[in-house]
Amino acid sequence: MYEPIRGTSVHSTMAGRTQDFPHRSREEELDIQLAGHLAALLAVTDELRALTPSADLDTAADRLAEQVARLRGGRTPARVPLTAAQDETRLAPLHRKAHTLAGRALVVAASRADTTAAILAAERMDAHAAAMEPRELAPR
């Protein structure tokens, strides 16, 4: 009725043989997670740069790319082309998304005691929070 098992069990680690697969340390896992959050933040920052070019976003994107490359052992992250986004109605949602991603990166950076990445993430949170605030009309 059932086919007999022909290979070793996938649960062989339960028998005490844990050398069969690679292990990563907590620090390595946090590096991977932080690099992922910063890379996602970089992608959103590149989209924002395409919609509203500014020196602040250019600098932020360069700093984010530098941190992602550092965490990934020198491999440069993929970048969104500046001509990719043209829909200005997406500006507010992109700032909210960037704020959320920067917050996630800040939590991971703080847990791994990476001050450089934590400061960068906090700066980006502040910048995106400021961009989401309603702007007052200038007095006439």
Rank of each mutant, 00 (worst) to 15 (best):
V107C: 01
A117W: 02
P134G: 05
A138I: 03
H128V: 01
V108P: 00
A102D: 13
M132E: 15
T116K: 13
A78G: 13
T100K: 03
A78Q: 13
E88G: 01
D126A: 14
A117N: 04
A121K: 10
A102L: 12
T115Y: 05
M125V: 13
A138E: 08
K97F: 03
G103C: 08
S111F: 09
H99N: 13
T116L: 12
R135I: 12
T115M: 11
L94M: 14
A85C: 11
A98D: 06
R79K: 14
A102F: 08
A118H: 03
L137D: 11
A131R: 09
P93I: 07
I119Q: 09
A102W: 07
V108Q: 03
A102G: 13
A85E: 08
T100M: 04
A118M: 03
T116D: 11
D87C: 04
S111D: 15
A117I: 07
S111R: 15
A102T: 14
A105C: 10
R90Q: 10
R96W: 12
S111I: 07
A92M: 09
L101C: 08
L94K: 02
A117S: 14
K97N: 09
Q86N: 05
I119N: 05
D114Q: 11
A85I: 09
R104W: 07
A98Q: 06
H99V: 05
P134I: 12
K97P: 01
T83F: 09
P81Y: 00
R124D: 02
R135L: 10
G103H: 02
A78W: 12
R124C: 09
A122T: 06
A118E: 08
A117Y: 03
A92D: 02
D87S: 05
L91S: 01
R135W: 00
D126V: 11
A127L: 14
E123N: 12
T83R: 05
R90V: 05
R90S: 06
H99P: 01
T116N: 06
G103M: 02
R96G: 13
V108M: 12
L137T: 08
A131F: 11
A98W: 05
P93Q: 10
A92V: 05
A113P: 01
R79M: 13
A138F: 06
L101D: 00
I119R: 08
R90A: 10
L120W: 14
